[in-house]
Amino acid sequence: MFAYVGVTADRWRPRTRREWLTVAVGGLLLIAAYHAFLFAGEARPGVTSAAAAVVVSLSPVITTGFGRFVLPDDRLTPLGVLGLCCGLVASSFSSSPRPSTRGDLSVLLDSNALGSLLVLCATASFALGSTLTERLDPDLPPATVEAWSMLLGALLMNATSVALGEPQRVPLAPDPLAALGYLSVVASALGFLLYFSLLDRLGSVEVNLVSYVAPIVAAVVGWWLLGETLDATTAAGFLVVFAGFCLLKRRALHRELRRFVDDGARAD
C-alpha cells in the first residue's frame, strides 16, 4: 500500500493532529478491533458464514445510531429508536444458544452466542470507526489513510496475538497461503482502498449499505465451499435488520422512491 501511495498520492504521510487521529481511529477500530473480533467470532463453533453475515449486515443500522451522536445535526426520532431495536433483536436471532441439559452459564460460552456477540463487537467497532472518520474528515488522500491505518492495525493485532500466545508461523500449505494472499491483497488492500474512497464521497451510512449483500454472498459461498445450510432463523434475522434500516432511513428512501416515480412519469 505504501508503494501504491508513493506512485498515486500527492501526500504519503499525515501532518496535522486531525490526520494522525484519523489514522489512529482507522488502525484501532476499522482494522485491528474489527478483524480481531470478527475472526475470533467466526472461529467459534456453530457460527456459520451466513449467520455471521447477518450480524455484519447490522452495520448500516449501528452506523446510523452512532451518527446521531457523533455527526452534527442528527437526531434519533422514536421511529429511529424502533429501527435500532429491530437491529438488536435481529442480532439475537443468530446468537440463540443451542438446547442443553446443563444448568450452568457455561452453555452460553459453548454455544454460538459468544461467537455472534464477538461478531457484533466487530460490527460495532467498524460502525463507530466509520462515523468518527467521517466526522474528522481529514484533508488526506484515502490511500494514505488506508496505508497508515493498516500499518497501525497490523502492529496492534500482532502484538495482541503474541500476548495471547498464538502461533506466529503460517503453515506452508496451499490452503493457508491462498487464504492469506486473498485476505491481504483482495479483501484488505483493494477492499479498504475502495472503502476509504467511497467513505470520503458518500459518507459512513451509505457506504455501509454494502453490508446488506453480505448475507447473500456468505450463504452462497458457505453452501458451495463449506456445505453450510441457510436456516429460516438466519433469513428472518436478515429481514428484521432490513426492516430496521428502512425505519431509520425512511425519509431518504421516500425521496429516492419519489424521484424514481417522477423520472418514470417523465419518461412516459
Rank of each mutant, 00 (worst) to 15 (best):
M1V: 10
M1Q: 10
M1K: 08
F2D: 03
F2W: 09
F2R: 01
A3G: 06
A3F: 12
Y4V: 14
Y4Q: 02
Y4C: 03
Y4H: 00
V5S: 02
V5L: 02
V5C: 08
V5F: 03
G6V: 02
G6Y: 05
G6K: 10
V7F: 10
V7T: 01
V7R: 12
T8K: 13
T8W: 05
T8F: 09
T8A: 08
A9S: 15
A9W: 07
A9T: 06
D10C: 00
D10I: 04
D10L: 02
D10H: 11
R11A: 09
R11L: 06
W12V: 08
R13H: 15
R13D: 00
R13W: 09
R13P: 00
R13E: 06
R13K: 10
R13A: 08
R13I: 07
P14H: 06
P14L: 05
P14N: 07
R15C: 00
R15A: 04
T16Q: 08
T16I: 04
T16V: 07
T16F: 12
R17Q: 06
R17N: 09
R17Y: 08
R17T: 15
R18D: 11
R18P: 09
R18V: 01
E19M: 14
E19N: 01
W20P: 07
W20D: 04
L21N: 12
T22F: 05
T22A: 12
V23E: 03
V23C: 04
V23Y: 02
A24E: 13
A24V: 14
A24I: 04
A24H: 11
A24F: 10
A24T: 13
V25D: 05
V25N: 10
V25R: 14
V25E: 15
G26R: 07
G26A: 09
G26W: 07
G26N: 04
G26I: 06
G26S: 13
G26M: 12
L28G: 03
L28A: 05
L29Y: 01
L29I: 05
L29T: 04
L29K: 03
L30Y: 02
L30G: 05
I31Q: 13
I31P: 03
I31R: 02
I31M: 12
I31W: 04
I31G: 01
A32N: 05
A32E: 03
A32L: 00
A32Q: 07
A33I: 01
A33G: 06
A33H: 09
A33S: 15
A33T: 05
A33Y: 11
Y34T: 15
Y34W: 00
Y34D: 13
Y34Q: 06
H35S: 12
H35F: 15
H35R: 13
A36D: 14
A36W: 15
A36R: 05
F37E: 01
F37W: 15
F37S: 11
L38A: 14
L38Y: 15
L38Q: 15
F39K: 06
F39P: 09
F39E: 12
F39C: 11
F39S: 07
F39T: 13
